[in-house]
């Protein structure tokens, strides 16, 4: 493999990780921004998406059944959590929210172990995207290209909705100043709820998409949670731009860190987080200045 194609593959790896992180963090960041809610259980929802995706794919024999079922089931789970628990924690302050959702992580991890067992389970890629693709002499797994494409698509759709539609304007108004938006006739509660559902669905989608690459295991949500939180905090809470910038920073720092500085790679993203917090305590692109 030539030197050029090696770096091209690493760049694609970075892109793929960034897109996965983006799918996870965009929901989390808008929930932070709109609801001021710290949801540590977001990672558990991602793991749930992976498990549902695998189970649905095994039951029907089609990858796409899991791809469709995961976001729906995870969003429904999110709705249950929201109505049962999170709604009453809305005004309880970040510490109580951190703790309640930390408790949820514990519960979810054991539910995964109860239902799907302790051992990691995998699934197959969809027939449409199996094998490898070759472009300009660079060979890369097709399924990973699909992840990159899907992430870019979601990014584009969200950017369009947020910047060009009335719904997007209402969401931005809610993030900026929820009380003022409510005074101007925006049904902020309804928007909150909608955003929460979409955020959960995207976490489920990310899980289903990630399942063939990284097999599903009970701790997968806890493992990705920290990276996702770093994306959100580095990017600045509540903004799409922040989630995009944060995903790319963390995704590439992690990928190239592993290649270039294997011993301190995992240190890199924490150092990035610490630097941003110390010098820009609200992140790079906070929704509210």
């Amino acid at each position: 493999m030539s030197d050029w194609s090696y770096w091209a593959v690493q760049t694609l790896n970075g892109l793929q990780l960034s897109m996965l992180l983006f799918l996870l963090s965009v929901g989390l960041t808008v929930i932070f921004g709109l609801l001021h809610f710290v949801n540590l259980a977001h990672g558990a929802l991602y793991a749930l998406g992976a498990y549902i995706g695998i189970s649905a794919a095994t039951a029907t024999g089609s990858y796409w059944a899991g791809f469709a079922a995961a976001p729906v089931v995870v969003a429904l789970t999110g709705i249950l959590l929201y109505l049962g628990l999170m709604k009453r924690m809305r005004r309880a302050g970040p510490m109580n929210q951190v703790l309640v959702t930390l408790g949820l992580i514990f519960v979810f991890v054991d539910i995964f172990r109860l239902v799907w067992g302790d051992i990691a389970i995998g699934t197959v890629e969809p027939a449409l995207f199996t094998g490898r693709s070759e472009l300009f002499g660079v060979v890369y797994p097709t399924y990973r290209l699909f992840i990159i494409g899907l992430g870019a698509l979601v990014m584009a759709v969200l950017a369009l909705v947020l910047s060009r539609t009335q719904l997007g304007a209402m969401i931005r108004a809610g993030v900026d100043n929820d009380q003022m938006a409510a005074c101007l006739g925006v049904n902020v509660e309804k928007i909150f709820f909608l955003v929460f559902c979409v955020g959960c669905a995207l976490a489920g989608l990310a899980g289903a998409v990630a399942a063939p690459v990284f097999s599903a295991h009970p701790d997968m949500g806890t493992e990705i949670l920290i990276s996702t939180l770093i994306v959100v905090v580095v990017g600045g809470m509540g903004s799409l731009r922040g989630a995009i910038a944060g995903s790319f920073l963390v995704g590439f720092a992690q990928t190239f860190g592993t290649v270039l500085l294997p011993h301190v790679a995992s240190l890199l993203i924490y150092a990035l987080l610490a630097l941003v917090l110390v010098f820009r305590p609200t992140g790079l692109f906070p929704a509210r200045a």
């Binding site: 970040p94 951190v98 939180l229 770093i230 905090v233 240190l267 924490y270 610490a274 917090l277 110390v278």
Partner: peptide, 24 residues
Amino acid sequence: RTHGIFFIMATLAFGQMAYVLVFE
């Protein structure tokens, strides 16, 4: 200088750095 969730995240970052340094 940091407060609320940012403080929680900042302490998490320093704790994790210590963890990684020891781990590696």
